[in-house]
Amino acid sequence: MLRSYLRLALFALGLLIGVQVPGFIDDYGKRVEAHRLESELGLKGFRDTARRFFKADLQALVAHYRVSDDPVMRSDAQSVGELVERSALLEQEWQAMQGPWYGQVWHLTVTADRAMLEETFAAYRYQVLLAPEAIAWGISSALLLAWSIEGLLLMLAWVFGAGQDRRARERHWR
């Protein structure tokens, strides 16, 4: 009976962990979009200048700033260059979060921007979504967790001989 309750508790834990995945993915996507929009707003004036004088090429604008005789312009070249790089990174992150759910999960686990991932973890509030994808994630992770833990425990029990009767042990040790 205790074993059944432990299985049920393990299943519930897996379910609760699994329903967090879509919420976290959504929060990360919103964070990326907010940073991207803020970045675009910060580059708006520079984009206008690049559009007028450099055929909308921000890299050409930065290169022009770098070779300028004016020390202030040369100093600003580094700042503008960093803004352009950040904007490109945020655009890549945003594009990755526009794909299918499995692509988003892969991106978050392998190539996501670590700083934004940590920001999202720090600000994340646990939630129970009742959206179909959250339910699917919850049930899948509950089954996976329950099966893997129970399989591990059964394998350990088998290795250490738990559950064998006395006659079977005597037969193996003769």
Results as ranks from 00 to 15, higher is better:
Ser4Gly: 13
Tyr5Gln: 12
Leu6Thr: 03
Leu8Ser: 14
Ala9Thr: 10
Leu13Arg: 02
Gly14His: 05
Ile17Glu: 04
Pro22Lys: 02
Ile25Met: 13
Ile25Asp: 06
Gly29Asn: 05
Arg31His: 05
Val32Cys: 10
Val32Lys: 10
Glu33Gln: 15
Ala34Met: 13
His35Cys: 00
Arg36Cys: 00
Arg36Gln: 13
Leu37Lys: 15
Leu37Pro: 02
Leu37Glu: 11
Leu37Arg: 10
Glu38Lys: 05
Glu40Leu: 13
Leu41Lys: 12
Leu43Lys: 00
Arg47Ile: 01
Arg47Val: 04
Arg51Phe: 04
Phe53Gln: 11
Leu58Ser: 01
His64Ile: 07
Arg66Gly: 09
Ser68Pro: 13
Asp70Met: 10
Met73Pro: 00
Met73Arg: 08
Arg74Asp: 06
Asp76Thr: 12
Gln78Ser: 09
Val80Trp: 01
Val80Tyr: 03
Leu83Gly: 07
Glu85Arg: 03
Ala88Met: 03
Glu91Met: 08
Gln92Ala: 15
Glu93Ile: 00
Gln95Asp: 14
Met97Tyr: 00
Pro100Trp: 07
Pro100Gly: 13
Trp101Arg: 14
Val105Glu: 05
Trp106Glu: 10
His107Asp: 07
Asp113Tyr: 00
Arg114Asn: 03
Glu119His: 07
Glu119Val: 05
Thr120Ser: 11
Ala123Gln: 15
Ala123Thr: 13
Ala123Pro: 03
Gln127His: 14
Pro132Asn: 02
Pro132Glu: 08
Ile135Ser: 04
Gly138Val: 05
Gly138Ser: 04
Ser140Thr: 15
Ser141Cys: 07
Leu145Tyr: 09
Ala146Gln: 06
Ala146Pro: 03
Ser148His: 10
Ser148Arg: 02
Leu152Val: 14
Leu152Ser: 12
Leu153Ile: 12
Leu153Cys: 08
Met155His: 15
Met155Thr: 14
Ala157Ser: 11
Ala157Gln: 14
Val159Pro: 02
Asp165Ala: 07
Trp173Gln: 08
Arg174Pro: 11
